[in-house]
C-alpha cells in the first residue's frame, strides 16, 4: 500500500494529518485491497485528505457540502466498493447540512468522517457551525451561537454507527475506524482535530490542549476482526460486545454504569449531559449493526448497476411493442 502524496498538504506543519495516518493503517491492517475502495470529499482543508491515502483507489473531490449526494450515486452505482468520505465541520454542518441529514436518514453504507476543528481553515479561520458557544477566534471574536452536535444529529436521523474521537488519540481512532470499515450502513465519525493554524489557541474549545483536558472516553474500544483469535481480557460485567455485519466484533469497555451503545436514548442522553459539562464523550456512541441499509431498501441486484451488460438493461422488442399497444 502506497502512502505517497502527489500534492502539498493544505498547511505547513500539518504533514499528512493524524486522521489520514489512521485511515491508511486501518485499511492496511484489515487487508483491504485499495482498488476496491472509493474516496470522496467536498471542499475545505479536510476535503483534500483523500488525495493523501490509498493512491490506487479512485477518488472524487466534489463540491462544497455536496459530497453525500455524489457518494450516494457512487455507492448505489457500484455496491461492491467500500466508500470513505472525508468532510469538515463547515462542509458538513453549514453548506452541507441538508445533504448530511439525508445521507444519515438513508443509512447509506459508507464511512463518513468529519474532521472537526470548529473553524474554516481554508478561508483563514472564520467560525463554523460546530464552534462551541463562547469560544473565540484568534482575532478575539466570540462565537455567540450554539454548536450543532453532528453526533446527536446523526443518531437522531438514523445513522447506524456514530462515533466521536480525537485526532490526538491514535489508539482509539484506529479502533473506531476499523470497526467502521466492518460496519454495514452509515458509519459517521466526528473527529475533533484542532486546526494548528487558525484554531489552536487559548480561547478555542477545539484546540489540542482543550480537548486533551476535556475528553471523556466513553469506552475502551477494541476492534477484533473475526479472523483473529479473540483473547481479550475483560470483566464480563463491564463490557459490551457488538457483532458487526462482517462477523467482526467490537468490545466496548463501559465507563458509565448504565451505558448501552445500542440504545438511542442513552446515547443522546450521554451527549447532552457531557456537552452541558463542557466535555466531549468519545468512543462509539451508538451502533445498530442489523439495521437495513439503503441498498437493501432499493432492492438492487448484487451485480453492480454500473457493470450490468446491455442484455440486462435494454428490454427486448417485445417489451416495446407491448408498451406501444397500451397507447393505441
Amino acid at each position: 500500500m502506497s502512502t505517497e502524496t502527489t500534492v502539498q498538504p493544505p498547511a505547513p506543519g500539518r504533514k499528512i494529518n493524524r486522521i489520514t495516518e489512521r485511515i491508511i493503517e486501518s485499511f492496511f491492517e484489515l487487508g483491504i485491497d485499495p482498488t476496491q475502495v472509493i474516496k470522496l470529499s467536498g471542499i475545505g482543508c479536510s476535503s483534500k485528505a483523500p488525495a493523501y491515502f490509498l493512491s490506487s483507489a479512485h477518488g472524487f473531490n466534489s463540491v462544497h457540502g455536496r459530497m453525500p449526494s455524489v457518494a450516494t450515486g457512487a455507492v448505489v452505482g457500484n455496491r461492491k466498493m467500500i466508500a470513505i468520505g472525508v468532510s469538515g465541520d463547515g462542509d458538513t454542518g453549514a453548506i452541507g447540512i441538508g445533504q448530511f441529514v439525508h445521507l444519515m436518514r438513508r443509512n447509506l453504507p459508507m464511512i463518513y468522517i468529519i474532521e472537526d476543528n470548529g473553524c474554516y481553515g481554508l478561508t483563514k479561520g472564520q467560525f463554523s457551525p460546530t464552534a462551541d458557544l463562547g469560544s473565540t477566534l484568534k482575532t478575539g471574536v466570540v462565537n455567540d451561537l450554539p454548536p450543532i452536535d453532528t453526533c446527536a444529529l446523526a443518531i437522531e436521523l438514523g445513522a447506524s454507527f456514530v462515533a466521536r474521537s480525537f485526532s490526538g488519540d491514535p489508539k482509539q481512532l484506529k479502533a473506531i475506524l476499523k470497526a467502521a470499515i466492518s460496519h454495514r450502513g452509515t458509519a459517521m465519525i466526528d473527529v475533533i482535530s484542532p486546526c494548528v493554524t487558525f484554531n489552536d489557541h487559548e480561547g478555542s474549545t477545539k484546540s489540542y490542549s482543550y480537548v486533551k483536558d476535556h475528553d471523556e472516553p466513553l469506552a475502551d474500544v477494541s476492534f477484533i476482526p473475526y479472523f483473529e483469535e479473540v483473547t481479550v481480557e475483560y470483566d464480563p460485567g463491564s463490557t459490551t460486545e457488538v457483532t458487526l455485519h462482517t462477523g467482526s466484533r467490537i468490545m466496548l469497555r463501559k465507563m458509565a454504569e448504565d451505558y448501552q451503545p445500542t440504545d438511542k436514548m442513552s446515547a443522546l442522553r450521554l451527549l447532552h449531559e457531557t456537552m452541558t459539562r463542557g466535555e466531549y464523550a468519545t468512543g462509539i456512541l451508538y451502533i445498530e449493526p442489523d439495521k437495513q441499509d439503503f441498498l437493501d431498501l432499493l432492492g438492487i441486484t448484487d451485480e453492480p448497476l454500473a457493470a450490468l451488460p446491455e442484455a440486462k438493461t435494454r428490454p427486448g422488442k417485445a417489451v416495446l411493442d407491448e408498451i406501444m399497444e397500451t397507447f393505441r
Partner: peptide
C-alpha cells in the same frame, strides 16, 4: 444531479 454525477463517475 450530485447523485447522477456520483453514479456516472462509477460507470452507471
Amino acid at each position: 444531479l450530485g447523485m447522477v454525477i456520483g453514479a456516472s463517475w462509477v460507470g452507471a
